[in-house]
């Protein structure tokens, strides 16, 4: 097998799916680092975003790319709403209680998707898209857009976290919550902003997953393990680590089909997760361990 085949059949699909994982993993890493719990409803929130996108695409007849911003905003509102209605009251209790609540939220969100949009798999657009040929490397437009959109969103997030007042407050909460609170950081606002960002990124992950593959009620849940593996692989709390982790997990999953039956693709993420917890729980970029 030549280098071109490896690139076309494993590297490109791996980077595409890895970009989608990266978008989700950034959200997971932010929740893990700032709010300090594992958010198990993350995948199903992405499913909701994808299906909200489907609603917009079918109702208004617009392209999924145009729907992206609206879907990100809508899902951000939903995420903030879930936090206000369900998670907020558990903030003073042990964090693991919120993990449990989020498992329930995952089930609830998925049940809503199944009730509203049914259980059959759907797509945004019909028809087969032929990949473009760039010097022998075959990439579809939507795959290119997925990767570029991920980079744009992550760069924007990094600028926000490094430059803006609220971004700094978020980082302060992540580094040392007690010190941040003493310095006058408004905890409630940081939580809200975190959920706005996380909800938006979640929706983007779901939308791009639906765009490159198909929309199913279980699409997000099956993405949960790779997203967590990516967040831990990169180092919890490290945005650039989550991106790196997502890309590695995505490529590793595709490459695994060289040695393993395709059914076990999902096992790759799990193996990476356990391996990292075993040898380097801080992740590649020295994140935190809760």
């Amino acid at each position: 097998m030549g280098a071109l085949e490896i690139i076309n059949f494993y590297l490109v699909p791996g980077l595409v799916v890895g970009s989608i994982y990266a978008l989700g993993a950034v959200g997971i890493t932010l929740v893990f680092a700032i709010l300090r719990y594992a958010h198990l409803a993350h995948g199903d929130l992405a499913t909701l975003g994808a299906f909200l996108g489907l609603g917009l695409v079918t109702a208004l007849g617009i392209s999924p790319y145009l729907a992206l911003t609206a879907v990100m905003a809508l899902t951000a509102v939903v995420a903030v709403g879930i936090d206000r209605v369900f998670y907020d009251y558990l903030r003073e209790r042990p964090k693991i209680v919120t993990v449990m609540a989020s498992l329930g939220i995952a089930l609830m969100v998925r049940a809503i998707v199944q009730m509203v949009w049914g259980v059959d798999s759907q797509t945004y657009t019909r028809g087969i898209v032929r990949p473009e040929n760039w010097f022998g490397i075959r990439v579809r437009d939507r795959e290119l857009i997925t990767i570029v959109a991920m980079i744009v969103l992550v760069v924007a997030l990094q600028l926000f976290l490094q430059r803006s007042k609220w971004g700094k407050a978020m980082r302060a909460m992540s580094d040392n919550p007690d010190l941040a609170l003493l310095s006058g950081v408004d905890n409630g606002k940081v939580v809200t902003i975190t959920w706005v960002i996380v909800g938006g990124l979640c929706a983007a992950a779901g939308l791009f997953l639906g765009l490159n593959f198909e929309l199913k009620a279980m699409m997000g849940w099956s993405m949960l393990l790779p997203m967590f593996a990516a967040a831990i692989l990169g180092g919890v709390g490290r945005v650039e680590g989550a991106v790196l982790g997502g890309l590695i997990v995505g490529v590793a999953e595709e490459m695994s089909t060289l040695f393993l039956p395709t059914e076990y693709k999902a096992a790759t993420a799990f193996a990476i997760l356990l391996l990292m917890l075993l040898v380097r729980p801080t992740g590649l970029l020295r994140g935190k361990v809760l």
Partner: peptide, 19 residues
Amino acid sequence: FRSDYLAIATIGVAEIIRL
């Protein structure tokens, strides 16, 4: 580690067993 990691890992185990 904290129990969050066990939660994720057990989700993974159940998924692998299902596969």
